[in-house]
């Protein structure tokens, strides 16, 4: 039982971080506005949670310009995909145990 709990990743133990990862798992990339609309969060909130995931090396942040408008887009790294998959597997196993 103890090993199962260990697989529950603290980095994903928040609704917004969980949401960001879910979206990036099935999309090649997503930009700031798209994430904001899908998750229904404020700019500051999203930025800080994205930053947290970036510092874990789970997502990559890419800043670029579309015309003159700055555009920030995110994608999940290999490491992030692996970690999130393990997190989902752990969640599923925990539910089956009960």
């Amino acid at each position: 039982m103890k090993s199962l709990i260990e697989n529950i990743n603290k980095a994903f133990d928040h609704r917004i971080r969980l949401g960001i990862m879910s979206i990036l798992m099935v999309n090649e990339y997503a930009d700031f506005t798209t994430l904001k609309e899908l998750l229904g969060v404020t700019d500051g909130n999203l930025a800080s949670h994205a930053k947290a995931l970036e510092s874990e090396n789970y997502i990559a942040i890419e800043k670029q310009f579309i015309g003159k408008k700055p555009n920030t887009r995110y994608n999940a790294t290999q490491e992030g995909r692996k970690a999130f998959q393990e997190h989902i597997d752990a969640l599923e196993k925990l539910i089956q145990k009960h």
Binding site: R15, L18, G19, S22, I23, M25, V26, N27, A30, T34, L38, L39, I88, L91, E92, L94, I95, H98
Partner: peptide, 19 residues
């Protein structure tokens, strides 16, 4: 368990909604 279930449901919903 309910929280874990809700997490999994949220993950699935967002995966569908975003694609």
């Amino acid at each position: 368990t309910n929280n874990y279930l809700q997490d999994l449901k949220d993950i699935k919903d967002l995966m569908n909604k975003s694609t």
